[in-house]
Amino acid sequence: MSGLEFHHVGVGTVLFEAAIATYVDLGYKLVTSVDDEALDVRIAFLSGPSGPLLEIVSPLGPDGPLRALLKKQALPSPYHTCYATRDLLLSGEMLRSKGFLQLGPPRPAAALGNAPITYHYHHAIGLLELVENPRLGQ
């Protein structure tokens, strides 16, 4: 995709530590782990011998962004893909022109050095995240 670089797959689960342990057992290495109070989620990034980064996402509180997926019993599962961009606004406009709806204003992501992120929903593919100039583990 124009101007976008694949960054990670987001995996939602309530079993945060067990999910990390399972991926480590599969050969992944834990890069960083934070409790992001502002986003109301626990986040861990893992890198593997091949393929994209994995992001483990677990709820911190009862009203976090995973609530709807949990109620549908849709977790644990991959539930979003994330792309890095140099220009969040420009990439957001590109997605808008292709039928995505941006969910809320940009917010800083603690696990990515407070890089701004946005979520975009498309009726056919679900959630896509954008992150501007991510700084993993900083």
């Binding site: 962004p65 609530r67 709807a68 997926l69 109620k71 549908k72 039928g99 709806l101 941006q102 969910l103 809320g104 204003p105 946005t118 929903y121 009726h123």
Partner: peptide, 22 residues
């Protein structure tokens, strides 16, 4: 829920030819 609300907004954009802001 929040996901179905987003689906509703996307449907309404198409039917009513409007745009919702983030």
């Amino acid at each position: 829920d929040s996901l179905n609300h987003v689906r509703l907004l996307i449907s309404l954009e198409a039917v009513l030819n409007i745009r919702f802001e983030p």
